[in-house]
Amino acid sequence: MEKIPMTIGGQKALAAEYEHRTASERRRIVEAISEARAHGDLSENAEYSAAKEQQSLNEGRIKELETILALADVIDISKLSGTTVKFGATVTYIDEATEEEKTYQVVGDPEADASGGRISISSPIARAMIGKEEGDSFEVSAPGGARSYEILKIKYV
C-alpha cells in the first residue's frame, strides 16, 4: 500500500480520534448493549439493534484509522519552503470570473476539510495548483465548465 501524506496536526487529530473511539466510545457502546440486553427479547429490541449498529460503525472507523495511521507519511510543513505550490502550502487565490478570494492549505486526504480551510492534495483544484507560483493562473474543470483562478500568495507555516 502507498504511504498517505499528512501534516503533524492531521496525524495528531486522527490519533486523538482513534484514542477517543477505542477508550470512550467502545466502553459507552458496550454499556448501551448491556443495558439493552437487560430489557429482554433481543429480536424486537430497537435499542439493542441501534447499539449493535453503533458498535459496527465504531469498529469500522477504528480499523480505518489504524490503517491510515500505519500508512501515514507525516510531513513537518514548518520545515518546508519555496515559491511553488506543493504539499503543505497555504495558497490564496482569486476566481478570475467572480473576483472571489479564497485561502486553503494543501493537506493529505484524511485531514481535508474545505470548510476548515484544508483541501486534499488529490482534489482537482490542488492538483491544478501544484507546481504553480504566485501570479500564475490555473484552470479547473467544473460541472458548469472550466473555471480560471490566479494564485495571489503562497506561504508555508
Rank of each mutant, 00 (worst) to 15 (best):
A97F: 08
A70F: 06
D95K: 05
I33V: 06
T103M: 04
Q11Y: 11
T98N: 06
E139R: 04
R147Y: 06
E99N: 03
I29M: 08
L65K: 02
E150C: 03
E100C: 11
A23L: 15
Y48G: 09
Y156V: 11
I4L: 04
E44N: 14
M129C: 00
R127F: 05
I130H: 11
T90R: 02
I8H: 13
A13Y: 10
G131H: 05
A70D: 07
Y149N: 01
S81V: 05
I4M: 05
L80M: 09
V107G: 10
T103A: 00
V107N: 10
K52N: 06
K86T: 02
S137H: 13
N58D: 02
E133Y: 11
T103Y: 04
S78Y: 09
P143S: 06
T83S: 15
L69W: 08
K12D: 15
S34F: 12
A38C: 05
L65D: 02
S120G: 08
V157I: 11
G10K: 04
P143G: 08
G116Y: 12
V157Y: 13
D73T: 00
E99F: 03
A15Q: 01
D73E: 10
K63Q: 09
S34I: 11
R118P: 13
D41K: 08
I121D: 14
I77P: 00
Q11D: 10
G40A: 12
K132C: 07
K79N: 13
T7I: 09
E134V: 07
A142P: 03
E59T: 09
E100K: 06
Q105R: 14
T22I: 06
S141M: 12
S115G: 07
G135W: 04
K153N: 09
I125G: 00
D76N: 12
G10H: 03
D95N: 10
T83Y: 11
V74A: 05
E2H: 13
A23C: 12
S141R: 12
E59C: 07
T22M: 02
Q55C: 07
R147P: 02
T103S: 01
S43H: 05
S43K: 02
L71D: 07
K102M: 07
S34W: 14
I94T: 12
Q11P: 10
P143W: 10
G144T: 12
M1D: 06
M129D: 00
E2Q: 15
L65A: 01
T67F: 08
R61G: 02
E66W: 11
S123T: 04
R27N: 07
A72M: 05
S49A: 14
G10P: 00
A36W: 12
E59P: 08
G145M: 00
V106Q: 10
S148V: 04
G131S: 08
G131Q: 15
K155E: 13
P110G: 06
N58T: 06
I121R: 08
F87S: 05
R61N: 00
L14I: 03
K3F: 05
M129T: 00
E53R: 04
